[in-house]
Design a protein around this nucleic acid. Structure first.
Lengths: 225, 225
DNA sequence: TCGGGCTGTTACCACCATATAACCCTTCGC
DNA sequence: GCGAAGGGTTATATGGTGGTAACAGCCCGA
């Protein structure tokens, strides 16, 4: 399952800040791009389409607020997260920043750890609205649309079949005991015959046309391409 | 589609803070409920189902962090916005707060104006349901004029029918559970029979004359051309 | 080689979710 | 007050879903 790394663009004219933030965000698994002034920030934002933009308010060329406004004006950046970063702890600027469409406003000096938590908090909320789309090789499972894609072909699975496949595909390679599968998909109180799972597995294999579910005899099933 | 006021619960043991925040939030059009300790906060949260909960960290009975954890443990509050409010400007607490699932962390003393902007910023990201004209292929949905166009033909839908179609069309392809539809179109407190949705869907399909709503059995409906 | 344990496969069918039509109550314009 | 439209319920039809049974095949140990 691919969870592509979140892309973050940091724009600040102080190299130290850039360095510290980049170091911390990278460690946390984010992909980091940096810019040292407003114009460069705009340029790199366009090219990299980051998920989060961190803007210093006081920057050469263009201020963070200006950059923010320009970004928000473009449809591609309507949804992008934006955090302002500033030494200026002045109310007016802060309010203006937030009203321009920023999602957070952090005052320097910043504690890297606190900053990280804030970033994570923002992404956490964003995540929920997003679908948890699984992509394994050329197989795509989209629970939001209830669609399976093998290559370009769209395949419709029934509810139970979908849930079963999704469960297995969540942890590729991991073997699920028949009991686990029953609990997860059917619920721990429902009692069904022993052949039920096999039949569903078969239907999935049949509909997908590819062999992605492996039987582990005497144990259970696992997803594998 | 309901545009009822956002409900906010404020929990703080200092009456002054409660008063100031309540005053400011009310002015901004929010519906405000207050609590003066942790237990009362939990109680009122359950009863009022607020969209945003503001928690003082230091409170009698239960701390803000405890309340937050208890709330987040309940499915009904998984999505609720939570802001911590505190005089304690200690890193550890702040990080813990954010990692508990809070969305923001504001240190006292607070400027009411800045605080308001932060609240607004949170809500802004949450509701991206701006009324805009949708155009999907040769189908146009104009929520301002309440008009549907299929090709050149104008079609009049009833209010509920329109709202239902608009909801689905906002995210083409995305499957909406019957529950989601009920919440969004009818409101979470209204109780209607199970067949109601089907009937409205049917009317829409009939009036539009084109097949743009797909049934996903056991799950819900999705818009698709 | 035989038999038991386990899984694959097929056919069958009950039941549940949805489709559909008919009906009723309320609201609103005239 | 009346008719029309909105919006909800109920009853019945229908098809897909998903469970079961029955049997075939395979692997492995005795």
């Amino acid at each position: 399952m691919e969870t592509k790394p979140r892309k973050v663009l940091i724009a600040d004219d102080e190299p130290d800040i850039l360095e510290i933030l980049k170091y911390n965000l990278s460690n946390e698994g984010y992909e980091v791009v940096t810019a040292k002034d407003g114009d460069e920030a705009l340029e790199k934002a366009r090219r990299n389409q980051p998920d989060l933009v961190i803007l210093d308010v006081m920057m050469p060329k263009k201020t963070g607020v200006e950059v923010c406004q320009l970004l928000r004006a473009q449809p591609a950046f309507k949804e992008t997260l934006i955090i302002f970063l500033t030494a200026v702890n002045d109310e007016g600027t802060q309010i203006k920043g937030l009203e321009t469409g920023a999602d957070d406003y952090v005052s320097k000096p910043i504690s890297p750890k606190v900053f990280l938590s804030r970033v994570n908090a923002l992404f956490r909320r964003l995540n929920k609205t997003e679908a948890r789309i699984l992509t394994i090789d050329h197989l795509t499972i989209d629970p939001e649309r209830f669609i399976i894609k093998v290559g370009e072909a769209e395949i419709i699975l029934a509810k139970k079949e979908f849930e079963l496949l999704y469960l297995l595909a969540l942890k590729p390679g991991r073997v699920f005991l028949r009991n686990e599968i029953l609990n997860q998909v059917w619920g721990n109180d429902v009692i069904v015959g022993d052949r039920t799972i096999d039949v569903h597995i078969r239907k999935i294999r049949q509909k997908l046309g590819i062999d992605c579910i492996t039987t582990v005899k005497g144990v259970g099933y696992k997803f594998e391409l």
